[in-house]
């Protein structure tokens, strides 16, 4: 185990949009089977980290390694084939399609139709509520059902690294707890999960590790329960800055 390469390693990653630089040198290592929460102020670069790891944003500097291999030149699709799956922030469903059609599209990268069908069956096993509503239009699902569908769709690819951006947005607190428990459960099955959360307190309680970003750099990282107690984090979420 000790010699195994980390699932994800970012070395001095610089990235942004056009001339606007957001990430100013991110160094980060993710170990297998851990749930890590990224926190930070708006514009600190949390979502950009995920988009860069997934390949929607091309880094202008640094290296990204997945299971020991450079991936920063690969297309998002090639990264998906290696097991990196990304659930963006906000509404991720195709509102005018049924639950089934949404699930099928989650497996577009899988070329084998039989495999796709098997994985869909497994997902429906896991989320019985989705099976009940299989022919319903996605736009008619409740918030919790929509999130189940998003996560279930992401699991079709049996990700080794799951990037999930603000899963709690728009969900009732009880459902948020369910979502976090689900993510935690995935890590028990060996999936590495990174999530961005604004809902800092409950997210940190659910996760193993936490990373605080400030102005495109890692300001603080460690076990969640130590990060949550850190006075700098408390200050940061009261509007202050981390004195780095």
């Amino acid at each position: 185990m000790a010699s195994e390469a980390p699932v994800l390693e970012m070395r001095g990653v610089v990235a942004g949009y056009g001339r606007l630089t957001i990430l100013r040198g991110i160094d980060f290592v993710a170990q297998r089977g851990r749930l890590t929460t990224f926190i930070g102020a708006n514009g600190a670069g949390k979502s950009t980290v995920f988009k860069t790891v997934f390949g929607l944003v091309r880094p202008t500097g640094g290296e990204i390694l997945f299971e020991g291999e450079r991936i920063d030149g690969l297309s998002p699709r090639a990264r998906m084939e290696r097991g990196i799956v990304f659930v963006p922030q906000g509404r991720n469903l195709f509102p005018r399609m049924t639950v089934r059609q949404n699930l099928e599209l989650g497996g577009v990268v899988l070329r084998d139709a039989a495999l796709r069908a098997r994985r869909m069956e497994a997902t429906l096993e896991r989320f019985p509520r989705l099976r009940e509503r299989i022919e319903a239009q996605a736009s008619t699902l409740s918030g919790g059902e929509q999130k189940q569908l998003e996560v279930g769709r992401a699991l079709l690819l049996e990700p080794r690294l799951l990037l999930i951006d603000e899963p709690s947005i728009g969900l009732a607190p009880r459902i948020v707890a369910d979502v976090f428990a689900l993510l935690r459960d995935l890590t028990d099955h060996g999936v590495t999960v990174l999530m961005v959360e604004q809902n800092v307190r409950s997210a940190l309680r659910a996760s193993h590790l936490a990373v605080a970003l400030e102005q495109g750099r890692v300001a603080l990282e460690g076990p969640s329960d130590s990060v949550i107690e850190d006075p700098r984090v408390r200050a940061m979420f009261l509007g202050g800055h981390v004195a780095a």
Partner: peptide, 23 residues
């Protein structure tokens, strides 16, 4: 068709389509 579905997906939610590996 899966191609047609992907086109609809791209139209209905571009970001989600990208995140699913749809070209």
């Amino acid at each position: 068709t899966l191609a047609g579905r992907q086109m609809q997906a791209a139209a209905q939610n571009r970001d989600a389509a990208l995140s699913l590996g749809i070209d």
